[in-house]
Simulated assay, not measured.
Amino acid sequence: MTSSLSGFPPALIRRLVIKIGSALLVDPDGRVRDAWLRTLVDDIAARKQAGQQIIVVSSGAIALGARRLKLPKGGRGSLEDAQAAAATGQIALSQCWASLLQDKGITAAQMLVTLEDLEHRRRYLNASATLERLMALDVVPVVNENDSVATAEIRFGDNDRLAARIGQAARADAVVLLSDVDGLYTANPHVDADAMLIERIERIDARIAGMADGGSASGMGSGGMTSKIEAARIATGAGAHLAIISGKVDAPLSHWEQGGRGSIFIAAPAKRARKGWLAGRLTVRGRITVDAGAERALGKGNSLLPAGVSRVEGFFARGDVVDILAEDGRVIARGLSEYDSEQAARIAGKRSEDIAILLGELPRSVLVHRDHMAMV
């Protein structure tokens, strides 16, 4: 029941990821909201004392660095400004977290990651192993995107999705996003007085996705409700619950646990680790559209045969990740292609005997094997 999950109590949630956005951690003048942050650290200390393992995903580096460097537009006027602000602000951010946690007798660790660290399978496993070891050592990892080297092409773009991917890598039981609103509403509550809070979401369908507002209310962060729903897709697909709650109150975790409002996206049955990694990826190399018969076959757990493919798009090599689309454009699966894009386009719609004649051999009978594919 939602009521039993409210607050994500330590008795039910062993490992929790907490994401804090820039607008909550840094005031409009570029200073840390120290008094508020101390109440959150009190929450974290109480949960650790109760046996819950905590991972923090913290924004704020660019906002802090922009003030110190006196950069316009909060450091987001250009890629170069954002990278310089991040490099400067990250020191201040990590020192702040380390100091406040140390006051509670808690050791902090810093982890800076890029999109590629979690999209590349071996690097993802390395990150997962590091998080696991830090948990075993009773440390609180403080994670942020390495914005000092990230570019528009290779970055998460918001820490909501980063938090979900970190939750997946850490095998967390739940992720909580501290937000400027206290959950998912039927419409934007800032502009629609009749908007209603949705407290429990069992399935993210078109109706739920359509309620998202992509804007960032503060103008300081990079996410909005759209990014939070995308994060919920990743987290729930990996078997973790995800909650959106208000961070505009002191001690936000305690406030929620004591009856504060929020929205909980209920976890789906956890996928096998490799398939969960595939489903949670944010970058793909190509798109393969299939006919209705192939869609039904994939839904039954079968591999993707070339005969069911109607279109191949993009440039990819064998082993690259591709999206598999239904005829109406819906992404229904994601997997590793057994052929490169040129060969995949040549054999699309062909049966095995025809492929052997066309290529001079039949190196592999499937285009995407079911063991290397995750339904989404």
Score class of each variant (00 low, 15 high):
residue 5 L to P: 03
residue 8 F to K: 05
residue 8 F to Q: 04
residue 14 R to E: 15
residue 17 V to D: 01
residue 18 I to K: 03
residue 21 G to C: 11
residue 24 L to N: 00
residue 25 L to Q: 04
residue 29 D to T: 15
residue 31 R to A: 12
residue 32 V to R: 04
residue 34 D to V: 15
residue 34 D to M: 10
residue 46 A to F: 01
residue 50 A to S: 14
residue 53 Q to I: 12
residue 60 G to W: 06
residue 62 I to Y: 11
residue 64 L to E: 00
residue 66 A to C: 06
residue 67 R to C: 01
residue 70 K to F: 00
residue 74 G to Y: 02
residue 77 G to P: 10
residue 94 S to G: 09
residue 97 W to K: 04
residue 98 A to V: 12
residue 104 K to R: 15
residue 108 A to M: 14
residue 108 A to D: 09
residue 110 Q to C: 05
residue 110 Q to L: 08
residue 111 M to K: 05
residue 112 L to R: 02
residue 112 L to C: 09
residue 113 V to R: 04
residue 124 Y to W: 07
residue 130 T to R: 11
residue 131 L to K: 03
residue 135 M to F: 11
residue 137 L to N: 09
residue 148 S to I: 05
residue 150 A to N: 12
residue 151 T to H: 06
residue 154 I to K: 15
residue 162 L to I: 06
residue 164 A to E: 06
residue 171 R to E: 13
residue 179 S to F: 05
residue 180 D to Q: 01
residue 183 G to E: 08
residue 198 I to D: 07
residue 200 R to V: 10
residue 201 I to N: 03
residue 215 G to Q: 15
residue 217 A to E: 06
residue 220 M to H: 07
residue 223 G to A: 15
residue 225 M to A: 03
residue 232 A to I: 01
residue 236 T to R: 11
residue 238 A to Q: 11
residue 240 A to R: 03
residue 241 H to T: 08
residue 248 K to Q: 14
residue 249 V to P: 04
residue 251 A to P: 10
residue 253 L to Q: 05
residue 256 W to L: 09
residue 256 W to K: 01
residue 260 G to A: 08
residue 262 G to F: 00
residue 268 A to Q: 15
residue 270 A to G: 06
residue 271 K to W: 08
residue 276 G to W: 03
residue 277 W to C: 07
residue 280 G to P: 08
residue 287 R to Q: 13
residue 290 V to W: 03
residue 293 G to D: 07
residue 293 G to M: 10
residue 294 A to R: 00
residue 300 K to Y: 12
residue 312 V to Y: 01
residue 328 D to I: 10
residue 340 D to T: 12
residue 342 E to D: 14
residue 344 A to R: 02
residue 350 K to N: 05
residue 352 S to A: 15
residue 357 I to W: 00
residue 357 I to K: 14
residue 358 L to Y: 04
residue 362 L to K: 07
residue 364 R to Y: 14
residue 369 H to V: 08
residue 372 H to M: 05
